[in-house]
Design a protein around this nucleic acid. Structure first.
Length: 261
DNA sequence: ATGGTAGCCGAGCTA
């Protein structure tokens, strides 16, 4: 079985590429972020025609997350947790769906953007992560297979950015954000991609501006964090940077994880 | 410090 996470940066402008990518990559479950579509704008029909059902889609005032799975797939239960909006508490769905699970539980996460050090959004981001971690700790307990997939908007280590000089004093690398990320590792979650995509110089996101992709100026901010039981099943992982190439690419690459049956 | 690009919508705002 194969699962994936991808910040698509607008599902309506990306639908042709997402469709083509799904067909050639043959994933069973896809978590998407930054769908930027109201529910009535979401291309449900396109995914259904490909054999996927959209388990969840939701958005706040300017963002959105979704998760879709192959029709008939019973092993994976899907949930989502997005940034529910400035000033709002963590989405209630995250609590209720995550509480009673069996089999693989897979989550599509969009961690709020902190914008800048000292910005009120940064404090919000860190408290959002702290609350999520407390819930995830419960989900991952008792040998459950849990995968927290998505755009974390954090580069946890210096080698996860193309230049620490450039990012010094900027968002995504600050000690508070990194501590919030590392707290998930301390809680027993594992970065299941890293062993299969070792760095430095391995990224998942490249800015559209200043020719960042051809200049190899990226960040590793998209992660699949697995509970120990999930991590034990991981057979491989790929960051599909080919998908970042060409006209009409998202600024993020898909991240794919292969599981043993 | 600014501006560079892409996407939302049709002016700024968000990333």
């Amino acid at each position: 079985m194969r699962i994936a996470t991808w910040n698509v940066n607008s599902i309506r402008s990306r639908i042709d590429r997402v469709e083509a990518w799904l067909q050639r990559s043959d994933v069973d479950v896809l978590a998407m972020q930054e769908t930027k579509a109201k529910d009535e704008q979401f291309p449900y029909d396109r995914f259904r025609a490909l054999g996927y059902e959209v388990a969840h889609h939701g958005m706040n005032q300017w963002n959105g997350v979704a998760i879709l799975s192959r029709v008939g797939l019973e092993e994976v239960e899907v949930g989502f947790s997005g940034d529910p909006g400035w000033g709002e508490p963590l989405a209630a769905e995250a609590r209720s769906i995550g509480a009673t699970c069996a089999g693989i539980r897979m989550w599509s996460l969009y961690v709020p953007n902190g914008r800048a050090i000292g910005d009120p959004h940064m404090a919000y981001k860190i408290s959002w992560l702290t609350e999520l971690k407390e819930q995830a700790r419960g989900w991952g307990a008792a040998g459950r297979q849990v995968a927290l997939c998505g755009d974390w908007n954090i580069a946890p280590f210096d080698e996860d950015v193309w230049s620490m000089e450039y990012y010094l004093d900027k968002s995504h690398v600050s000690p508070g954000e990194r501590a919030a990320f590392h707290a998930f590792l301390d809680a027993g979650f594992v970065d299941v991609v890293r062993p299969h995509a070792p760095g430095p110089g391995v990224y998942t996101y490249w800015d559209y501006q200043r020719l960042a992709f051809p200049k190899k100026r990226g960040m590793r901010i998209d992660f699949v964090l697995g509970s120990p039981a999930f991590a034990a099943r991981v057979a491989g992982a790929v960051i599909d940077r080919e998908e970042r190439k060409g006209v009409g690419a998202s600024d993020h690459a898909p991240v794919v994880v292969e599981l043993e049956d």
